[in-house]
């Protein structure tokens, strides 16, 4: 077997230091503003791709980033106790999941996912990191080696979006819409 060629890629990483979080939700404000269309024209923390779970009386301050969409909720659930603090069911989960309102557009219900602030040109750092002045969120880029033939086009991303639409509206409706859209072109 021929040896796979190695190349490097940059992995973006946000480090969350929950101990430094003061619960201000500036990260939610600016994330939702950044993703508004046109950019910054509105803001709405309910659309943010980062959610800060706070329970001041229990000293719970937990910024969580929106991850993958999932069509079905987990059968088994986790609860955590950390440092004597009990976290609610699903607190650490990043999924946009039918079991909860988090990480979904409040009007359409479409899933939200952190894109590390995809933008042309690239941002110096993600918006939520920039607006978190107390360093609860910090950003670093690390170089890692990857296999050459690792897929470049993230077809899964497209699939995932479609899947969620199918879940929400049914396959027929989605197919109809795609057919209609392609006729327009």
């Amino acid at each position: 077997m021929a040896e796979k060629k190695k190349k490097t890629k940059i992995v973006k990483r946000i480090h969350v230091d929950a101990d430094k979080c003061n619960g201000c939700r500036a990260c939610e404000v600016v994330c939702s503003a950044f993703h508004a269309a046109p950019k910054y024209s509105s803001n709405n923390p309910a659309r943010s791709r980062i959610r800060v779970i706070t329970h001041p009386l229990k000293d719970i301050y937990l910024p969580v980033y929106a991850g993958e969409y999932t069509p079905a909720e987990c059968l088994g659930r986790n609860t955590y106790t950390l440092d004597g603090k009990e976290y609610d069911e699903c607190a650490f989960c990043r999924a946009s999941c039918p079991s909860r309102d988090d990480f979904k557009e409040p009007d359409s219900g479409l899933p939200l996912k952190c894109d590390m602030c995809e933008s042309e040109p690239d941002l110096d750092e993600p918006m939520c990191v920039k607006w978190c002045l107390v360093d609860a969120l910090t950003y670093e880029e690390v170089e890692v080696e990857v296999d050459e033939d690792e897929d470049e086009v993230r077809i899964e991303d497209v699939e995932l979006g479609l899947e969620s639409l199918v879940d929400k509206y049914g396959l027929d409706k989605v197919l109809d819409t795609i057919a209609r859209l392609s006729k327009k072109d």
């Binding site: 003061n22 201000c24 939700r25 000293d59 301050y61 107390v134």
Partner: peptide, 17 residues
Amino acid sequence: RTRLISCYNCPMKCGAT
């Protein structure tokens, strides 16, 4: 004091639990 805490959208954390 368990933590210094802020108001909405502010880094100053003038309050505390």
